[in-house]
Amino acid sequence: MGILEVKNVNKRFGGLQALGNVNLSVAENTVHAIIGPNGAGKSTLLNVLVGKLIPDTGSVMFDGKSVLGRAPYEINQMGISRVFQTPEIFGDLTVMENMMIPCFAKRDGAFELNPLASVGKQTDIVERAEQMLIDMKMIDKRHMHAASMSRGDKRRLEIGMCLSQQPRLLLLDEPTAGMARADTNNTIDLLKQIKAERDITIAIIEHDMHVVFSLAERITVLAQGTPLVEDTPDKIKGHPKVREAYLGESA
């Protein structure tokens, strides 16, 4: 049993079968990549996992519990954190404030009425957020407005915010899309380091083969909403069906 079990998931948008009979099992403490050409249904699948979309049929179990019908914030509280295709951070707030918010969410839950407490006096949160900023090599930017940072730094901050919650499953949707090569490599290194340092399961959706083959331990190939094959990177590289459906196209 994997930490994430997707069984017979179907999702239609009008006449379009975006997901058809998707079965997927992500083993604990692995990096699992989901690849496939544009429009294959990768983002749709991810949206099903985080509660943004409800599938027409099928089940999604995380750690033995169903996630279907739960709101995104509830699914996050179960231990799934998500990184978006374009970095979603709190642009109006400082980097430090950005980092403290997930720490509060982890400690206090989805809602806490503490209007008279003082942020500065929550030493556990301040320390945790600072430590995370040090880990992310962003501590010198702590007073900066998050919106004024470079795309690469925003991505780094977003990943740090997700990690500060100590999630059991980290979902990344094309984390290097639109990035320059150097930023892409930095992100790969960061993810490798994250994986090496802690017990975490990572599911990554990616278009960039360089990223996929640098990180993934297992790969699922999605085409037209249906998983084509699932195997190790080496096997996937040589798989004829995959070459035909996907690699051949982009090579």
Binding site: V50, N76, I89, I101
Partner: peptide, 10 residues
């Protein structure tokens, strides 16, 4: 950013 907030468990 309400989107980020929801996906941060809030």
């Amino acid at each position: 950013n309400q989107q980020r907030m929801n996906y941060t468990g809030l």
